[in-house]
Design a protein around this nucleic acid. Structure first.
Lengths: 239, 239
DNA sequence: AAGTGTGAAGTCTTTCACAGCT
DNA sequence: AGCTGTGAAAGACTTCACACTT
């Protein structure tokens, strides 16, 4: 009786813990994981918050705070066990399973994404390449055959596609997104330079190359302006 | 005399104003600009904060607050003049001039970046494609000839390269970054899945494809966990 | 009547600094 | 002696709500 109640409490506590990870922390966890993977390859067994933080370029206080949302996986006076921490972060991110993704749009960017080999080692598997255009359908890219976009509903169901990457031209992207959602996919990574409308419950993240360059340009210009004035804030480094 | 003093005050006020734009706002300005460009193409002359905000997928209060950091460019009771607002945002971002960029690393991603035609219309011009590998040097990509990476110092000087995009393999990226910095370039957009060390005064932004997918995966997993529990937070949409 | 611009309140994120554990 | 884990303080960002202008 006591044991049972205790277990229930633990389960609830655990679930609550996970739900509470702040967004800012979630967005940094993949970077910590990447650094830990490097350490594993180098055969390093233990790491301090200071060391790991400097690998990633954040402060050690921020790193410790971030990790504290996952649980207490460090050892005071010692540091973190690299393997164990890596496992715990994978667990928190949901990367102990593999996520099947589809890439839509086989232009230059779509091909580059298809050929990107940073996915496989990080819990993501490209399970389908799709395009609308007859001249691309049937061709091989990075070991996969390009299939007709119209087949997405069947493909998504059969292969359990959870996430779609859109590398389509801006003008057709909304239409493609609608079809992706209709096929039951609820997470989209959009590379097209346009914002898309999706129903509630569908997650969208945007990656816009020109936007990133423009943000850099802004800060470059600030600096130029600053030094033209008088005292330049030359030690400005972005996160 | 009075006129002169007044002008000086205006200049100082203006410069101060610009320096104070919050980072979060800066990162959204390119999106507003993109939406405004769409409106210009459609021949729309005026837009309300509500309309523009919904195009971009932010709240109208946030949009108005963001724009207020640039100045007062709207008309109460009416909205914003599309052309004028577009110009003011371009001005704030420093896009009234063209920024010369170089792309380093002509693998799949580098080629895709070189062929990306979202740059030209948005104040960014690709002025050099660089690679280390003899088999790529001299080939034409998207109308440009690939040049030896070793020539970067001269090229950067001659063509006024302000920003470098790194699409190099992870293992050589730090070395490439060092050379880029040595060539006098102070802004880097890094696509390699590794964090780089740069001296103070050099700006780095990272775009990591796998990271983005992993963040989506986290939220997908949260949802699955939530609905397995009891009440699912199904209306979860990311910014 | 409509819609901007903005103080003030509320929320989220980062940093500080030190108690607590090994 | 050293390094984590974390309350509490500081800071950044978002949302609210309404005075103000056209």
């Amino acid at each position: 009786m006591v044991g049972r109640e205790w277990k229930a409490v633990w389960v609830v506590g655990n679930a609550t813990e996970r739900r509470d990870i702040p967004d800012a922390t979630v967005s940094r966890l993949p970077e910590y994981l990447r650094a830990l993977t490097t350490l594993i390859e180098q055969g390093v067994a233990s790491v301090s918050s200071e060391e790991l933080a400097s690998m990633v370029g954040v402060s050690s206080a921020k790193l410790r705070k971030d990790l504290s949302y996952l649980g207490s996986y460090g050892v005071r006076g010692v540091g973190y066990d690299v393997d164990h921490l890596s496992y715990q972060i994978s667990l928190a991110l949901g990367l102990t399973r593999t996520w099947a993704i589809a890439i839509v749009g086989m232009g230059n960017l779509g091909r580059a994404l298809a050929a990107y080999n940073g996915f496989a080692s990080r819990g993501v598997e490209v399970m389908a390449l799709l395009d609308h255009h007859p001249s691309v359908i049937g061709t091989q890219i990075a070991g996969l055959t390009v299939e007709p976009f119209a087949d997405l509903p069947r493909i998504a169901r059969e292969r359990g596609i959870a996430i779609a990457l859109l590398a389509t031209p801006a003008r057709s992207t909304q239409e493609v997104a609608d079809a992706v959602v209709a096929a039951g996919i609820t997470a989209i990574l959009n590379f097209a330079p346009i914002s898309i409308d999706v129903p509630g419950g569908v997650q969208v993240r945007n990656v816009d190359l020109a936007t990133e360059v423009q943000i850099l340009a802004f800060h470059q210009q600030q600096r130029a302006r600053g030094s033209a004035d008088a005292a330049g804030a030359l030690a400005e480094v972005l996160p």
